[in-house]
């Protein structure tokens, strides 16, 4: 739905404004999942906006994603985090493991720098990896190091 909404943009400026509006909905990872200093194991490789990614198993056994973006200018990373959360949270792990990295180009267009592409694709890759780990574990019955009980599910390592 969110991706179809972006397709309605009439031009580059309108699309950028839509993406900025989406980024404004960003909320950093809740304390019950992680607190600073965040473990480097959740840091997105090659992302200069210092985006961290966590996934949480919901009681329904679906996964929900949480993000932190430590660079104050990381507005594209925040936008990507919101889109990943709003479009993928609740999907099955097997679907999440197949999310294509090209999603980045559908959202931001193809005129991204290599550095920006790698950082944003890295966030997608982190989501994939989390889903694959969840699948490999059979069931996420371990707690994320440093995370606390939330009563609404458990963090996937």
């Amino acid at each position: 739905m969110l991706l179809e909404y972006l397709d309605l943009a009439g031009d580059r400026d309108e699309r950028i404004q839509m993406l900025i509006d989406i980024a404004s909905r960003f909320r950093s990872v809740p304390d019950f999942i992680a607190t600073r200093p965040f473990p480097k194991s959740h840091l997105t490789p090659a992302c200069e906006s210092e985006a961290y990614v966590w996934c949480q198993e919901l009681p329904s056994q679906a996964l929900k994603f949480h993000f932190a973006v430590e660079n104050p200018q990381g507005i594209s990373a925040k936008c990507m985090a919101v889109i990943l959360d709003e479009t993928l949270s609740g999907e099955s792990a097997s679907s999440l493991a197949q999310v294509p990295g090209e999603l980045v180009y559908r959202i931001f267009g193809k005129n991204l720098s290599m550095g920006k592409s790698m950082g944003l694709m890295g966030m997608v890759s982190m989501v994939q990896s989390c889903a694959k780990r969840y699948l490999a574990s059979g069931k996420a019955d371990r707690r994320l190091e440093g995370s606390r009980e939330a009563g609404s599910g458990s963090a996937v390592p």
């Binding site: 993406l19 900025i20 990381g74 005129n111 991204l112 550095g115």
Partner: peptide, 22 residues
Amino acid sequence: NEDPLLYASGHIPGAVEVDWTR
């Protein structure tokens, strides 16, 4: 900028954008 969203999210008053690709 490298980040295509930054200029529209806030810039120096009166500043224009020069986009490296476009």
